[in-house]
């Protein structure tokens, strides 16, 4: 499948500090991709680069086959709901739909009106008087009714209460089911994304730590627990992501494409959250820890 987003050695520097470095990625089309990482890891930077809000300092990025923000046709292909879902406080809900209709050639007015009706948003209400959840839904409506190939959302649910969060994601998934658009959404909480993502990118310290399809990632990561042992005795094809020891027991989180044969281990399944947390708390790899971005993020 052709990637909907392709980054090669992408980097962005703000005033002497790298917000993103050496980012090489392919996000396949037709997926819901979760972009996970702690605050300041570079998630927003990556999304803003992809939306053309920022220009890269180094490397290249291609979205839906074009350079981000390069023209009206490119902008029409990509929807972006920025962090905190900005809306015009003085304009009404109906005004926002009008705005979308006037500024987007592919605008689906029936879809927008239907959504607003279903969400029970009063069209005459100014956006400044909506709740956070309603504003997010309005911004999402603008993003979906634009009918983009790729919809990106930067921390869309961070400011929402659990119920609004669930409704927002439900609506997003409904749009994915109906229109088959590709979605990239970021969050610093994996729990928000666990159910809805089938592709995952973990970004820590301005670098991509792991990326891939959720099923594949879950299939190659295992939790091993057994009698205490030295890590150097492990087979070469098992990469330790995290390890903890007590005086009798060793618990490992390993990545391997091959089955675990050693009968001394009891092998456990990982939840996506365990997997992500292991990567988030992983100490810097030797040889990689001298990059300037590391200190900044930590």
């Amino acid at each position: 499948m052709t990637p909907v987003l392709r980054a090669r050695a992408l980097g962005k520097m703000y005033k002497q500090r790298w917000a993103l470095t050496g980012c090489t990625l392919d996000i396949p089309a037709g997926h819901v991709t979760g972009l996970v990482g702690p605050n300041g890891a570079g998630k927003s930077t990556l999304l803003n680069l992809a939306a053309g809000m920022l220009t890269p300092t180094s490397g290249t990025i291609e979205v839906c086959g074009g350079r981000p923000g390069s023209g009206p046709a490119q902008l029409a292909k990509v929807g972006f709901v920025a962090q905190d879902t900005p809306t015009y406080p003085g304009l009404t809900v109906a005004d926002h739909l009008q705005l979308g209709a006037r500024l987007n050639p592919g605008w689906d007015d029936a879809l927008a009106r239907h959504r607003i009706k279903r969400l029970a948003l009063d069209p005459a209400r100014p956006a400044g008087k909506l709740s956070g959840g309603q504003r997010a839904q309005l911004a999402l409506t603008l993003g979906i009714a634009k009918r983009p190939e790729l919809l990106m959302l930067d921390e869309p649910v961070a400011a929402l209460d659990p119920l609004a969060r669930r409704e927002f994601l439900q609506d997003l998934m409904d749009a994915v089911a109906e229109y088959g658009l590709s979605v990239v959404l970021s969050s610093h909480l994996i729990a928000d994304l666990e159910r809805v993502c089938d592709h995952l990118i973990v970004l820590v310290g301005s670098k991509v730590q792991v990326a891939g399809e959720v099923e594949d990632l879950l299939a190659v990561h295992h939790r091993l627990s057994g009698p205490r042992r030295d890590l150097s005795t492990l087979p070469a094809n098992q990469h330790v992501i995290s390890a903890s020891h007590t005086d009798r027991q060793t618990t490992l989180l390993v990545r391997t494409d091959d089955p675990i044969l050693d009968p001394a281990w009891s092998v456990g399944r990982l939840s996506l959250e365990d997997l992500v947390l292991a990567y988030l708390s992983r100490p810097a790899e030797p040889g990689h820890d001298h990059r300037p971005a590391r200190e900044v993020v930590r």
Binding site: P86, L103, K146
Partner: peptide
């Protein structure tokens, strides 16, 4: 200040226009 440029710049219209 309101961040609305991030809304309008992500419609199908260039910043120049």
């Amino acid at each position: 200040e309101l961040g609305t440029h991030r809304l309008v710049w992500n419609q199908s219209i260039t910043r120049t226009r």
